[in-house]
Amino acid sequence: METLKNLAHNYYYLVAVVLFVIGMHTMLTHSNLIKKVIAMNIMDTSVFLLFVAIGYIRGGQAPIMRDIGDGFYINPLPGALILTGIVVGVSVTAYALSLVVKIYRYYGTVDADEIVEIRSREQ
């Protein structure tokens, strides 16, 4: 019971982990290249969610020191790291999409299975 209670309390982490597995599954099993790219994004996003959730403290304020209120602040480091992570994810996505555009131009399809079929027919 303790386990389930912890799971319920850590729901942010739980969702992040579930998203991670979904992303990994889609990335490895789906043959549609665009779906693979989307899955890559889901996977990245799940890690971002996990990271940001780590930094959160219940009741904490955003770490901007303008109005020193009565409260306390959340941990700023994970947020800063994830800012970097997001940009990295965007870059990879852009490059992957440019590859897909060109693959579509050569084969007329974005489905990996069909591409394999086309190639085997040619040989």
């Binding site: 555009v101 060109k102 050569y106 007329g108």
Partner: peptide
């Protein structure tokens, strides 16, 4: 730059060449 390059790549495609 990313947007324009992808769009231009797309524009050049038109209809895809015949497979193979």
């Amino acid at each position: 730059t990313l947007f324009y390059n992808l769009i231009e790549g797309e524009a050049k495609v038109g209809d895809p060449e015949k497979p193979g």
